[in-house]
Design a protein around this nucleic acid. Structure first.
Lengths: 194, 194
DNA sequence: GTCTATACTAAGATAGAC
DNA sequence: GTCTATCTTAGTATAGAC
């Protein structure tokens, strides 16, 4: 670990992981080749295989870090100030690179990621934790009477996460973030209705 | 076109398209090779290149047909009997192979599909049409007073489609259809609240 | 229409020198 | 730690015979 004071003294290993994260986000696991990673990282063949055993190992490091970041970003909003509704709204309206899709959710469409327990674990874990955390916030809203009492926290949490994940799909299909924003506004309207 | 009376006298071309549809659904465009298609279809190399100019041409035929089927399946439910809510509910609860994901929505995560206007067109078109059709049904519900008047039909339509598309993501992440069903039930509960 | 032969690049990795 | 072979199998097609 560096003291984070100097101007980005990135190690080769570090650059390889970052390059892999970008490529996985853009092209998925199947579409990401070791060679492409090396070029993006400015590292040689031998260098890559010195630091990582292969493609799967590299992807594992990349996916773990991406999942970690996503979890932290969500917690930053959901653990913040404000009413339950306000925090869910903040989560839904949080800044996102909508047209790039979700770097974690995207991986679920990759059969080789889903088939590999190691690669899949961080994906499942972070999405599960997100749902759990949202369910807690919904429960707070129910307890305080802010949200209607007939709602099931786990279900609403799943609906919230699904709307975001599906919003990415609609945005990418049209090449515009508009449908993502529409889906989110629709959900907020439904949640707001007393 | 055959008279559809005889026992599936599938042409080679037909088998190639069907095999491509399956592989695109399972592995996406990047992960689907001409060779794999040929093997799945029981067709030779030369045969495939006789009927199609290449991978893109084959994918185009497959995607168009898949989009068409998806549109027809949605219209069968949304154009059916019942109140607006009942038809939206029927759409959401319609039988689905949840763990396989959406054969159309899946393609939006494929950069080569999104980058190719021809391949992307059917995807964008069918998802757009679906949103439009759902918006009409929501409008009916507003007109009849069945749904709250403050809702925006286009937004709710986007929320409904996004919930389904995102439900697939959650299901594949966990390896279980449970979160898909939760997301759908959560949305129905929100819609039902008067 | 279908088959086999051929071609050329990329994917994914190992071996051994420096 | 990094570099340069080298290897094997796939990906994606074209050519020409049958």
């Amino acid at each position: 670990m560096y003291s984070a004071v100097m101007s980005t003294p990135k190690t080769t290993s570090e650059r390889l992981v970052e390059a892999t994260r970008e490529l996985l986000w853009e092209r998925g696991y199947v579409g990401t080749s070791p060679k492409a990673v090396q070029q993006a990282a400015g590292a040689g063949q031998g260098s890559m295989y010195h630091h990582f055993t292969g493609k799967q190992d590299l992807a594992l490091a990349a996916i773990r870090r991406t999942a970690e970041e996503m979890g932290a970003a969500a917690e930053a909003v959901l653990g913040g100030e404000g009413s339950a509704y306000a925090r869910i709204e903040a989560y839904l309206l949080r800044e996102r690179e909508v047209l790039r899709g979700c770097p974690v959710g995207r991986l679920t469409m990759d059969p080789e990621v889903i088939a590999d327990p190691e690669l899949r674990a961080p994906v499942e874990e972070v999405l599960g934790r997100l749902r759990g955390r949202l369910a807690e916030v919904v429960q707070e809203g129910l307890d305080s009477g802010e949200l209607r009492g007939s709602l099931d926290p786990e279900e609403i949490a799943a609906t919230v996460v699904a709307t975001v994940q599906g919003g990415y799909v609609l945005a990418r299909a049209t090449g515009s973030r508009a449908p993502f924003d529409s889906a989110v506004r629709g959900l907020l309207a439904l949640l707001a209705a007393t």
